[in-house]
């Protein structure tokens, strides 16, 4: 018993060392900007840069659009498949898992070939088109997580019974979908949304290859040209990831609480 505990503590301490040292080092490095003393100059410099605010807000907006469009696509689909076409479930599940198989860089490579300026649908010609392409790319990347989260939430509420109950009370289809189904799978949508957010805001490959003024490419650019700002940005990114994970944990706990109360 004590031997088991000893090894367990050892494993935790070794892991803690490996995980905490880079964070401390990053923090330390980010505060070295002013010679001879520690300061938050690097953070000041980061926040003073206009491009920080503009690229970050661009990425946030793109992420939010992705979440809304993604939820509008996936919730009705998952609902429809559960209710009307259960025989399609294996196929839909397979498709939603595909983005794990096809790396993001390959997907975006395909977009650039299919929707370039000389193609039948030249989306890359305009800013709006390229933005749309980016949103679709983010949606594709988040598909496995979003679909799973929503589908799991639907399993716990038994959509068929809920739909029949609503129909028997005379509800129309839009009412059923937006007043009955959406609120009940909201926690699933939310936990999917936070993962999407975490993926989309920091994503480098897609916006970089689409030449979008996003946060990921900006980070890489700073990394190539500055010394003390990159670790400051890394700390900021780490803090943001931490916040999204805590939000995910809270929503899943709410979901479990709701399921437990049933």
């Amino acid at each position: 018993m004590t031997a088991k505990k000893f090894w367990s503590w050892l494993a935790v301490f070794v892991a803690a060392f490996y995980f905490i040292v880079p964070l401390l080092a990053t923090l330390e490095f980010s505060m070295r900007m002013r010679r001879g003393t520690y300061s938050f100059d690097a953070y000041r410099s980061v926040f003073a840069d206009d491009r920080f605010a503009s690229t970050f807000s661009y990425s946030v907006v793109m992420a939010l659009i992705t979440i809304v469009v993604g939820a509008l696509l996936i919730v009705p689909t998952a609902y429809w498949v559960r209710l009307r076409m259960p025989y399609l479930r294996p196929v839909v599940e397979f498709v939603t898992l595909l983005p794990l198989v096809v790396p993001a860089i390959v997907i975006i490579f395909g977009y650039l070939r299919l929707y370039n300026s000389s193609s039948w649908l030249p989306l890359t010609n305009t800013d709006m088109g390229a933005n749309a392409l980016l949103v679709f790319g983010f949606m594709t990347m988040s598909l496995p997580y979003m679909y799973r989260a929503v589908d799991t939430a639907m399993r716990t509420i038994d959509v068929a019974v809920l739909t029949e109950a609503a129909e028997s009370l005379g509800a129309s289809w839009p009412t059923i979908l937006f007043r009955c189904i959406f609120p009940n799978v909201l926690t699933g949508v939310l936990s999917g949304a936070f993962i999407t957010f975490a993926i989309a805001v920091g994503e480098f490959t897609m916006p970089s290859l689409l030449n979008r003024p996003a946060f990921g490419p900006y980070l890489a650019l700073i990394g190539a040209n500055k010394a003390y700002e990159p670790p400051a940005l890394a700390m900021i990114a780490f803090a943001m990831t931490w916040v999204s994970i805590i939000l995910i944990n809270i929503t899943t706990r709410l979901q479990k609480g709701a399921a437990g109360a049933r």
């Binding site: 890394a234 990114a237 995910i248």
Partner: peptide, 21 residues
């Protein structure tokens, strides 16, 4: 909880962190 954060802490910021380490 930390693992949830760290598994999502990839990409460019992670590279910065290891350069700083």
């Amino acid at each position: 909880t930390f693992c949830g954060v760290a598994s999502n802490f990839a990409g460019v910021p992670l590279a910065f962190a290891f350069l700083a380490t």
